[in-house]
Amino acid sequence: MSIEIKDIIKPENLVYQKSSLLTDRVMHYCPGCSHGVVNRLIAEVIEELGIQNETIGVTPVGCSVLLYNYIDVDWHEAAHGRAPAVGTGIKRLRPDRYVFTYQGDGDLAAIGTAETIHACNRGENIVMIFINNGIYGMTGGQMAPTTLQGMNTSTSPFGRDLARDGNPLKMTEIVAQLPGTCYVTRQAVHTAAAVRKTKKALFKAFENQKLNKGTSFVEVVSTCSSGWKLTPVQSNKWMEENMFPYYPLGDLKDK
C-alpha cells in the first residue's frame, strides 16, 4: 500500500506549526542568519505565554530593523543604540505591559553602551535580547565591539588589532555584575538542542518580567554569513570554533 501526501498531512500527524504570531512577510535576512531563528522563537514564546495583546517590542537599527514586519505585536522602532531608553520609557509608563528590546552588537554594545548599562543598572523590568554576531551586518561588515581578535572586517581589513581597537567587549559579563539584572544568560541557535535552550531562556526572561524581578538579559551568539563571508554551514562551524571559546554559553546569573 502506498502512502499519499494527503494521508500524511493530517492534524494528528502534526509535529510542528508556524507560530500564529509570525506574519506571512518574507524575512529579508540572508541564508544562514541567526536573526530569523531568534525572531521565530520570540513569536513562539509570546504566543505560548498568551501575552500577544500585552507585549510591546522595541526594534533596533541593524539587520533586524524590520523585525516589526514579522511578529504580530505592537512595536516601537528606536534610533541606533537607544532601545533600552525607549523600552524604559514604555515600561515606566505602562508597567502592566511586557516590554522587550532586541538589539545587535553594534547597537547594544557600541553606540548604545550607556543606555544598556544604565537600563540594567536601574533594573528596568524588561527583557533585553542581544544578538552578538561579532560584526555590523546591516552596513556591510564593519568591525563591531564584539569582533574577535584578528578577525577581518571591512574596517579592520588586516584583523582586529587589540592595541588599536581594544578587546572584544563582553557586555553580558558586564551587565551580570549589575545588581539590577536578575537573569543573564548566553545562548546560541546553531543546533536543535541549542534552539530549545534559547527558547527556554526566553520563557524564563518573560516570566521574570511578570514577577517584577528586574532586567533579564539574553545574549544569543549568532552567525552573519554575509558579513563573515562564509557559507551557512561554515558559519556555524566557525562560530563554534572561534566565538564559543571567547563567549562561552550558559547562565551567568539567575536569581
Binding site: 553594534g106 557600541a110 555590523y136 552596513t139 556591510g140 564593519q142 574596517t155 581589513p157
Partner: peptide, 16 residues
C-alpha cells in the same frame, strides 16, 4: 568615525 551608509567607504578606504 562610525560606520553608516552611504559613506562607510571613507573609513574602509582609510583602513585599507
Amino acid at each position: 568615525g562610525y560606520p553608516i551608509t552611504p559613506q562607510s567607504e571613507i573609513m574602509e578606504t582609510l583602513m585599507l
